[in-house]
């Protein structure tokens, strides 16, 4: 019923004796070898790049998902209000936020909260971009940095200072805290 009998192809004698099939195989392997050899030696245009020397960074698309980072707005206010949504949604639980209160004498006292600590463990981050998607304040963005390396685990734990350093300033879109507008 559901059984399908696959008819094996009938091989000619020179095929089952590895004569013509062997020649075909050699043609394929030698063809590839020659093509790639010419590419390596520079006689033919390459389709690949030698990674650390040549990079394609300027061609990365706008939506590229690299390292997540925190951003400040045009008044250098921390956009993050430590609502912890990103912490909760983060699939590998790479984000850890310690919320903190903004003192009442601060010019941005009405924002009420900002993170006291904001750590992203880059050994866990899977660059999925859920934190960016869930953030109501558009405070966390995935940047184009993809080569996140370090010599220790501590180095790969991005703290708040590091995250703002990567993120920098981002202008526009969320204006609700901006008194000027």
């Amino acid at each position: 019923m559901a059984t399908i009998f696959v008819k094996r192809p009938k091989l000619a004698w020179h095929e089952s004796w590895f004569i013509s099939t062997f020649a075909k195989g050699l043609k394929i392997t030698l063809g590839h070898a020659l093509k790639t050899f010419l590419e390596i030696t520079g006689k033919k245009e390459k389709v690949t790049m030698e990674y650390p020397e040549q990079k394609w960074d300027e061609n990365l698309p706008e939506y590229y998902r690299g390292a997540p980072a925190l951003v400040t707005d045009e008044q250098d206010r921390e956009r993050c209000v430590s609502c912890q949504l990103c912490e909760f949604i983060c699939p590998p639980k790479a984000i850890r936020i310690t919320p903190g209160e903004i003192p009442s004498d601060d010019p941005w006292a009405k924002v009420e909260k900002r993170p006291k600590e904001f750590d992203i463990d880059m050994t866990r981050c899977i660059y999925c971009g859920m934190c960016e998607e869930v953030c109501p304040e558009q405070a966390i963005y995935l940047r184009k940095d993809y080569a996140i390396t370090g010599e220790s685990r501590a180095e790969l734990m991005h703290d708040k200072a590091k995250l703002y350093q990567i993120g920098g300033k981002r202008i526009g879109l969320v204006n609700k805290w901006n008194e000027l507008k």
């Binding site: 590839h32 070898a33 790639t36 390596i40």
Partner: peptide, 13 residues
């Protein structure tokens, strides 16, 4: 190197 070029790779260079 030879296996690399056969498989369209570069090999140890």
């Amino acid at each position: 190197r030879f296996s690399a070029v056969i498989q369209d790779r570069v090999g140890p260079n």
